[in-house]
Design a protein around this nucleic acid. Structure first.
Lengths: 217, 217
DNA sequence: GCCGAACCGTAACGTACGGTACGGCTTGCC
DNA sequence: GGCAAGCCGTACCGTACGTTACGGTTCGGC
């Protein structure tokens, strides 16, 4: 189990120039995979290697900063659980599903997950933890209040929000992420994602929708 | 899309000595992650680097051979779809779910997927394709006949076996694989896996079980 | 205008590792 | 026994890359 909540405000302590350097590193990571070399980053960012080392310590520090920098950018506005009816709950779930599919199928996410997976093998740093915390666990934190609200409103029926969330996660992601990480060319168009989001939501509601009407009346 | 069926019979063309060398490489891969160096493999296997290069060409060749060697070992006996009733279908699905969870949570699978994911980034070889082909796609090939048989017997109701399979896959795996690959310490005991297999199977049947009795009577 | 800090560009250093070469040992064949 | 093939162990080579060092330039403060 890892439930570390890393510094959220890394974006605060970075100068504009540093952000620009990290953006360059990010682009390079997406383009070239893990062969990201310090020289390449320096050249791409038009900065000196000396500066990279001064700012980020070493290569792993740069990688970590890059991942956290990206993580700080993808934070999505949470959905409010007020005035919940079946239609709005459905819409929220579809929105979450759609957003999540877009995230995990993006070039950036794939590149970041690849490098994090690679580093998790040689447990030098906790890149994997950072990615997990800002990906799967962040999603759970945002979605669970919605699920709880759905239960309060008598629309959903489950014993444990975590378990319900994991089933939703599975129904949405299915084999998409592992296939993409392993290099499968999976074309996820806007339409495909929309359809999958609707399907996953319907399946989730079929499994966890309250059998009775609202409030068990 | 990748639907390459690589040589199945790699195990045939390998001498016992070569299998022993690949086993050594496999153990090293599990223990040390991707820093698997040629020198380390040679030392562990008590063979010379010259021999490694003669047999496997280069480092990527060794890696590919190792992955294929492992893949050739995990091939599981397919379930026959004869005399299918709800009980035996349920048992088959639970068996598939349990087997799959055991596979993806094994040290070997995690190590192999990590190196394959890493290599998929720098698309030099098709390790990712090999892993996918012997993992997720092999599972689909073995499970789909069962699903089709279930449909023929009037126990299941779905339009597309591929879609049904992917939902089953999602319900079984959920977030397990990505969490493990990213280094999350997820304790999957025998009991946990068994419970998850039952749960996933029940959920799948709830979604795809035929509403009417057998044969639509 | 002067000074120091920060930073750019580049050169240099050290090492790890993929790949190659070679001497010596075993083994099977004549 | 002689010989060739296959293989082990080790030394060696070349390169890529992380890391450090340094001269030159810009810029804010005085």
């Amino acid at each position: 189990m890892l439930h570390i909540v890393p510094d959220i405000d890394t974006s605060e302590t970075l100068t504009e120039r540093q952000k620009a350097v990290l953006d360059a590193a990010l682009r390079l990571l997406v383009e070239e995979g893990d062969q990201l070399t310090m020289t390449a980053v320096a050249r791409r960012a038009s900065c000196s290697k000396e500066t990279l080392y001064k700012w980020f310590g070493d290569r792993d520090g740069l990688l970590t900063a890059t991942v956290q920098w990206q993580a700080s950018k993808v934070r999505v506005a949470p959905v409010d659980g007020k005035g919940l009816d079946l239609a709005s709950l459905t819409a929220s779930l579809e929105r979450f599903a759609s957003d999540w599919l877009k995230v995990i199928s993006s070039d950036t996410s794939i590149a970041l997950n690849r490098v994090a997976v690679g580093h998790a093998g040689s447990g030098k740093d906790n890149l994997g933890a950072v990615v997990l915390e800002n990906g799967r666990f962040a999603l759970a934190r945002r979605l669970k209040p919605v699920l709880e609200a759905g239960r309060q409103a008598g629309l959903l029926d489950f014993a444990d929000a975590e378990t319900a969330f994991r089933s939703f996660f599975g129904l949405v992601a299915r084999d998409v992420q592992i296939r993409l990480l392993l290099g499968d060319r999976l074309e996820l168009t806007e339409a495909t994602i929309g359809g999958d989001a609707v399907r996953a939501t319907q399946q989730f509601l079929a499994l966890f929708g309250a059998k009775t009407g609202p409030q068990g009346l």
